[in-house]
Every structure is written in structure tokens, then in C-alpha cells.
Design a protein around this nucleic acid. Structure first.
Lengths: 217, 217
DNA sequence: CAAGAATGCGAGCGACCGCTCGCGTTTGTC
DNA sequence: GACAAACGCGAGCGGTCGCTCGCATTCTTG
């Protein structure tokens, strides 16, 4: 079998095909974030996109591949748009400012792409998507740990890891509340999330908080 | 139809039947907290209990009823065992103590009955179970609001509601982390959760925190 | 324009799941 | 012991879902 390739060749696509793929991914995002991954049926995705089930399977080998491709594209978007959200900051930056900036970027992204939340927080995620989620989780944790270590110079690694996990957990909890509200109420919850994170971290840092470490409404 | 009753009569049960019901609910708890409610199949529950599908449906009209009965029994257990977990406390109680006691009780219950977490936090919960979850959620929120109002005397109602939502969200996030670890690490996360809650609430209360408002490890 | 590849369709296949039904067994009651 | 009710079984029914297949249509390419 001389023409066999470990990475199967990506079939030649016409412009029409690329358009269909984008259309199908958009429909999938819609269905995923209203019903979740497992409950979403491929027929429903095809119907939402206005094509037949056969057409869907012309472009995706199976249901999981749809979610994976959608996840990959969202991750790519996040990296190019908000990649610097957790980049190391000037160690002189006040804690409030660093937390506020990171929270704002991630909240913005999740509000703009609700399917991301549905894919990453669904408890029913199968194989490969779960791996993607775990990889993102691990990446975020190491980034947060790196950031924290600049604020908490003298902390044992185990405590640093715990603190990072708590920060990510607090963020997820806040994100859920933020997404559940709109308008002014949403803004208020964003502020509350920042407050919770800053107050949680402030006693650990060398009280290197900004000029106003209390709440601000 | 003179014998028709709005509340259908509960079939006479023999002791054997009651035993089977308990056995089936135990099996259901096992399956629910390993695969979640939706992914759990009634055949799998029957197999786990060592009975046939037909036997299962001798005691439960449908799959949802199994989850509802399990949820009801867990709620009952919680009420009788930890009912006072969020009872109004002496207003002179230090914030740390009040938070610590409430967290300890709820964490203990969730560790002892992991199925409760699976049933209440699954995103795939259908009709009646969702209603049960919402009812519990609302109850907890009003209780928390009542508690908070004693610590935050001069706060607008809207802010009180937001703060209560944040507290519950923070607790859920911490619970997830606690359940994901064991032994000493689990204890450490319990302490971190208490720290996060106390530090979040301390600036709002009239600084009526205990003698030590910082972290303690 | 002709040929082949890419695209599009939708009935339907196989698998699984919630649930039923007919029938045999055990238990309580007189 | 006789009878009815509760218990127990497991093959299988109806339905959904992921996915396929045969065939028609459109596009690219020479």
C-alpha cells in the first residue's frame, strides 16, 4: 500500500465546502449551547444548518469531530484575541489591576462565544473533547501559578497549586453567575467576581494591593 | 369510576419489596454518581442491583421517579441531620465561626452522599428533578440572605441577593475541588474554601470578624 | 464539452434505551 | 391447603440516534 499515509490526506475542498463547514459549525455551536453536547443530535445540527444528515457527514467523520473542530477554532480565536490575558505582568502591577484585566478578558470571550462554556463545562463530555478540556485546564493552572508566584514569593509549591485551583474555581463560579444575568446586573456580578478574587488573594500577597483594596460599587 | 383517587393508592408492599426499593435506590445512587443521570440506563441500575429490568419497574413507574425518590430521601436525610446548618446564628458570632460551621456541615453531607452532588449539579436534569433542584437553590439563597442581613445591616436588597448568589457559587466551586481530592489535601481545600468565603464577606460586615481574620494553616 | 471529483440528499440500518407484558414463583391470609 | 396479591423474570416493542449508502447534482479541470 504505497499511498497509505499515517495522517490521512485532507480531501480537496471547494469554496462551497468550506462555507458548508462554517455553516455547520455555527449551527453546532447554537445547538450545543442550548442542549449541551450529549443531548445534541447530529440530525438537529443538520436541520439547524438547513442541510441533510448525509451532507453533514460529508464534512465530519462523526459527532465528536464536530465538537473537536469547534473547540479547536474557539481555542484558536481565544489565543489570537486574548492570548496575553494571563501573560506575566509587571511585578509592580497592583493585584486589583492584574485580576481585573484577566477577568475582563475571559468574561468577554465567554460572553461572545457561549458555545465555549457549553463545551468545556458540560459534565457529559466524551474522550477527545475531555482531553482538550483537561489540556486547557492544565495550561490555565500553570499560567495562574506563574502569575501567583510573582505575587506570593514565599509560598510552598503545594499551596501555590491549591491557590491556583481555587482561583480557577472561583472564576468558573463567577462566570456562571455572570452568564446567567444581563446588562447592569451582569456588570455587577463581574465586579463581585473581581472582589472575591482580590480579597481572596490580597492577604496572601504582601499586602501589595492597589490604593483601594476594598469594594468599589 | 368510584374508586378513582387523585392520589393513586400506594400499592401494598411486603417487606421484601421495601428491601428491593432500598437496594435499587442504592444501585441508582452508585450509577448516577459515576455516569450522571442522563447517561445512566435503567438496565444498568437493575444490573447493578442484581435484578431484572421488569423488577425495577415493579417499584418505580419510570426512570425519573427513581431519581426523584432518591433526591427526596437525601433531602430528608439532610434536613434531619444538618437542618440547622443555616439556622440563624447569634448575631455576636464571629463571621469565621458562622461560615466555618455551615461549610463543615454541608461538605460533610456531600462527602457522605456523593449522589446528591451528581443529581443536583448535573446539567442534564429533566423536569421534576430540576424543579427540586431549583427549590433547594431558592431555599438556600433565602437562608443565606437572612444570615447575611444580620452581618450586613445596611445593604440594599439587590446587593444582598448578589452577595448570597456569590456565596453559593463560591461554595459550589469549593465543593467540587474538595470532592476531587482526598485526605489531607481535601482538608486543605476545605480550609481554602472557608478562607475565600470569609475574606469575601469580611469587608462587607462591619469588620466584625473574629480575632484572626487572616489565613490560618 | 466530457469526465471525474466534490457536494447534496434522505430513506433507512444497527444499536441502544426506556419501558411493557405474559407468565412463573413466593408470600400473606382465611 | 386454597386463593389472591405481591414479587420476579427477560424477551422484546416502539422510538431515537449516530451514521451509511446509493444516487442525483454541481463544480473543476483538461
Amino acid at each position: 500500500m504505497p499511498e497509505h499515509q499515517t495522517t490521512e490526506q485532507p480531501r480537496r475542498r471547494q469554496a462551497r465546502g468550506e462555507r458548508r463547514i462554517a455553516q455547520l459549525l455555527e449551527a453546532a455551536a447554537q445547538v450545543f449551547c442550548t442542549t449541551g453536547y450529549t443531548a445534541a443530535s447530529t440530525n438537529a445540527i443538520a436541520r439547524e444548518a438547513g442541510v441533510s444528515p448525509g451532507t453533514l457527514y460529508q464534512f465530519f467523520p462523526n459527532k465528536e469531530a464536530i465538537a473537536i473542530e469547534l473547540g479547536d477554532r474557539l481555542m484558536q480565536t481565544m489565543r489570537t484575541t486574548y492570548g496575553e490575558a494571563l501573560a506575566p505582568v509587571d511585578p509592580a502591577t497592583p493585584l486589583e489591576e492584574a485580576v481585573g484585566a484577566a477577568v475582563d478578558r475571559f468574561i468577554d470571550f465567554n460572553c461572545a462565544h457561549p458555545a465555549f462554556f457549553a463545551l468545556m463545562h458540560g459534565p457529559d463530555i466524551p474522550g477527545r473533547i475531555g482531553e482538550e478540556h483537561d489540556a486547557l485546564h492544565a495550561t490555565l493552572l500553570t499560567r495562574i501559578e506563574a502569575l501567583l508566584s510573582s505575587f506570593l514569593p514565599s509560598a510552598p509549591p503545594a499551596e501555590l497549586t491549591r491557590t491556583a485551583h481555587m482561583c480557577l474555581g472561583l472564576y468558573k463560579a463567577g462566570l456562571e453567575l455572570v452568564l446567567a444575568h444581563e446588562g447592569a446586573e451582569r456588570e455587577a456580578y463581574v465586579q463581585e467576581l473581581k472582589n472575591a478574587l482580590v480579597r481572596y488573594l490580597a492577604p496572601l500577597a504582601g499586602d501589595r494591593t492597589g490604593p483601594d483594596s476594598g469594594s468599589r460599587d
